Amino acid sequence: MIKITEHPLNPDDITSTVFSNEAGAVNVFIGTVRATTQDKKVVRLEFETYLNMAIKEIEKIIEAMKNKWPVHHVVVHHRIGTLTVGEIAVVIAVSSPHRKEAFAACQYAIDTLKETVPIWKKEIFEDGEVWVSAHP
């Protein structure tokens, strides 16, 4: 399941959707807004997206995961809009028969999302702002 929303994310609700009697492992990645970046105090983050393309790209990531690992369920939720320090920006939950595959699939999901999905992040500091590239 994929969701891109301006509303807060609930990791417990998201995680509960991937549990399965066939899965021996559930791995969850929760990305939060940190207080500092390179010794600069973060005031807030602003996320923007090209929604239709973002959903299609996340669908491709999930399909690739299912082709590479024996995952049962994958959920990717991402916030857009303005987030403050401590808020959750992204939650990815993956279930699979074994932990090794669940960890690998979850890491692949967040790494690929940051590289390919058109969700852009602007960091606003006390003394300025910058659009962030996942891989400068």
Rank of each mutant, 00 (worst) to 15 (best):
I14F: 03
T15H: 05
E123L: 08
N52C: 09
I14C: 07
H98M: 15
I55C: 10
T36V: 05
V117P: 01
A109E: 01
V76C: 08
F29K: 02
V42G: 05
L83C: 03
N67D: 11
G81R: 06
K66C: 10
N10P: 08
D12G: 13
N67W: 03
I80R: 00
D39Q: 06
S20H: 05
A109S: 10
F103I: 08
Y50E: 15
L9Y: 02
V117Y: 03
R79N: 08
V18E: 03
E87G: 14
F125I: 00
K56T: 13
I4E: 04
E57Y: 13
I62H: 00
V117Q: 01
C106Y: 00
T116L: 12
F47L: 15
S133C: 10
E87A: 15
F47W: 12
M65W: 05
H98C: 13
L45W: 00
T49N: 13
I88F: 07
R44I: 09
G81I: 10
A134M: 13
Y50K: 14
V43H: 08
E22D: 12
P97N: 11
T15M: 14
I55H: 00
K68H: 08
P11K: 11
R34Q: 12
T116H: 07
N27W: 06
I4P: 03
T17D: 01
L9R: 04
H78A: 05
H78V: 04
E6G: 12
A104D: 12
E59M: 11
L51S: 09
L45Q: 02
A105Y: 02
P11M: 07
H77F: 04
A104W: 00
D12K: 07
K60P: 09
T116A: 13
V132D: 02
H72C: 13
R99V: 14
K114Y: 03
V43K: 08
A54D: 00
T84G: 08
P70R: 01
V26M: 00
P70Y: 02
H73D: 13
